[in-house]
Write a protein that binds this DNA or RNA. Structure first.
Ligand SMILES: [Mn+2]
Ligand SMILES: [Mn+2]
Ligand SMILES: [Zn+2]
Ligand SMILES: [Zn+2]
Lengths: 145, 145
DNA sequence: ATTGTAATTGATAATCATTATCATTAGCAA
DNA sequence: TTGCTAATGATAATGATTATCAATTACAAT
């Protein structure tokens, strides 16, 4: 049993939630996938293993994973929320190609520090932030010419 | 006739679009309001002046304003797109209070420069970005204790 | 093992901002 | 005026997500 599973089971126990095969299956599949996945994409994979699972359950489990600290929401502004691993996957921002949609995870400690300073200069205590950098990747730039 | 109106009329002419009282009214009301406004909020104000206007038209005019370079979309992630003035209102980011929802417009030239560098270090040519800083304002911090 | 109870599930309806459709109306150039 | 399109308003549709609810199930206590 890996660490994430452990955290999930502890979370269930602590909140009087029950350990069901649906929750286990959805957890497994989420953990195996790296990257950013939408509820629908996850549901499509889950269905293959157990066609009787409803998509409402996928949404419900994703909420649990967030509360348990195992998942984090990403909003690229296209109307679909995606989810990524949070455990052992520290904060980062995203660089997104407007041509092909490719995303890279980036972090710059100087920017992070300056964000805190900017907030403080307005009397704010910064809790978190979102930063999306949009542009064209090398591939897409070459194709454009 | 102010500069924004001029730009709007030029845009209409250039694209074989017609000058209608609905477009004029919605433009006027948008221009008078500073800050961030949703389509529904704008529609509520428009209705008071002309109850016969449909909300679809408000959505349509907002699209035109964006294409004409007079408006810009803001997405605070709450499921509602807001609009702000773009003309004579250069790029900036937003500092948002998680307590009271107050927003401040901020810009830090060092951050802007570093964003470009980060993107370039991955072979990207940066076109634009979004940055939202979330935290608690001074008021809300005092109330919390 | 059985039971009781409250949590969970899947199907389905509802939500809600935004977009599409379409018949009617109205700019505007000739 | 007229004719050609664009524009409008009412309404339906969309699509991701959430709510509802009857039936099922986990699980702790017997
Ligand atoms: Mn990521
Ligand atoms: Mn702003
Ligand atoms: Zn690309
Ligand atoms: Zn506040």
């Amino acid at each position: 049993m890996n660490e994430e599973q452990n955290i999930f089971h502890k979370y269930l126990e602590k909140h009087d939630l029950r350990d069901t095969p649906q929750r286990e299956l959805i957890l497994q599949i989420f953990l195996r996938r790296e990257g950013h996945i939408s509820a629908e994409q996850l549901y499509d994979i889950v269905k293959k293993r157990d066609p009787s699972i409803g998509q409402a359950t996928v949404y419900r489990v994703l909420k649990l994973l967030i509360e348990a600290g195992l998942a984090r929401e990403i909003d690229f502004g296209d109307g679909v929320i995606r989810y990524e691993h949070k455990y052992n996957h520290p904060h980062h921002d995203h660089l997104v190609c407007r041509g092909c949609g490719k995303t890279l995870e980036v972090v710059d400690s100087v920017i992070e520090e300056l964000q805190k300073r900017v907030a403080e200069s307005y009397g704010f205590e910064l809790t978190d932030h979102e930063m999306y950098l949009y542009g064209y990747c090398e591939n897409c730039r070459q194709k454009r010419q």
